[in-house]
Computed example of a mutant assay.
Amino acid sequence: MNPKPAPSIDLRAWRQFVAVAEELHFGRAAARLHMTQPPLTQAIAQLERLLQVPLFHRTSRKVALAPAGEALLPEVRELLARAQALPERARAAADGHTGRLRLGFVSTVGFELLPRWVRSFRELRPQVAMELVEATSDVQLQSLAQDELDAGLMLHAPGQAPGQLQSLRIATEPLVLALPADHALAAGPQPDWEAVLQQALVSFPRRILPSVHDAVMRLYQEAGRLPPVVQEAIQMQTIVNLVSAGIGVAWVPESVTRFRRDGVVYRRMAHAGLPECETSLVWPPGQVHPALAAFIDFVGHNTAPC
């Protein structure tokens, strides 16, 4: 036997209940509701029939809340307050002042840029829940395709943001050389270029940053050398730690220099063919939800011209 469905009670009936509960007088409650007393009396009686419990005790001289009425009153007040707030919440969601933003990011923006943006954006839109996911660009692309992220901050070679996504360029920076602090080439401000090309190289796999990886490999190929990669690592911090351990040297974005690691020094090279890398905010084409649109606008107004 199927259970009897719960009665459908509209907000008007609950407002009438609260008015009577607070006034404890049908005449005053009717005046407060801008109606006459008989329809209000009938409405309360109908509400009690639907609930199958008395909400009020009535005598010719007095109206008092019944136990069921006392139990319901605070919850009904909360219900009405929440209902009254719904239009404002809808407007806030449409304007991007509430909602959820799932943002992927590569480690290089986590050193300085992302914390500053997150703090400022949360001050502007505190009701937007930000979910931050550190991930390499290949993982971000997969997550964006599967609707597990709304947007991502990715590294790539200049002008080579993923073509299937919309993008906003954030910054352009050179690659710098990370060396063990006790390495012979670390003694001066500008290591010898030919000597650099002979050093064991710690690098990142092509799959996580293909356009930058290819640009670095071309440096060696154009010099007639085979890139001497001895170790690969996914995270930039791990690459720097391997350099500190003396495994080799590494080409890293200049923003990585903010990651201070004992035993590592950074040198900015003057070689003409040294590639740069860009950071872009990327997101899927099509309709953009309001919270993401607000973040894109925020980033656009807080990015210095490249």
Rank of each mutant, 00 (worst) to 15 (best):
N2G: 09
A6M: 02
S8T: 15
A13N: 06
R15S: 06
A21N: 12
E22Y: 03
E23I: 01
H25Y: 05
G27N: 15
R28F: 05
A31S: 15
A43R: 09
L50Y: 13
Q52Y: 03
V53K: 09
H57D: 10
S60R: 15
V63S: 00
L65M: 06
L65K: 01
A71G: 06
V76C: 01
L79T: 09
L86V: 10
A92G: 11
D95F: 03
L101M: 02
R102S: 07
T108C: 09
P115Y: 09
R119N: 13
R119E: 15
L124M: 09
R125L: 11
A129F: 14
S137V: 05
D138S: 05
V139G: 07
S143T: 13
L149G: 00
G152M: 05
H156Y: 00
G159K: 02
G159V: 03
S167E: 05
L168D: 03
T172V: 14
E173W: 06
V176L: 04
P180D: 14
P180S: 08
A181T: 04
G188Y: 08
G188S: 09
P189N: 02
P191Q: 04
A195E: 14
L201P: 03
R207M: 06
V212Q: 00
H213G: 00
R218F: 07
E222L: 11
P227E: 08
V229P: 00
V230F: 12
I234E: 15
Q235Y: 13
M236Q: 15
M236V: 15
V240N: 00
A245E: 11
T257R: 13
R258F: 12
R268Y: 02
M269T: 11
G273W: 05
L274T: 08
E278A: 10
G286C: 03
H289T: 03
A291D: 02
L292G: 02
D297A: 14
F298M: 08
V299D: 03
N302K: 08
N302A: 04
P305W: 06
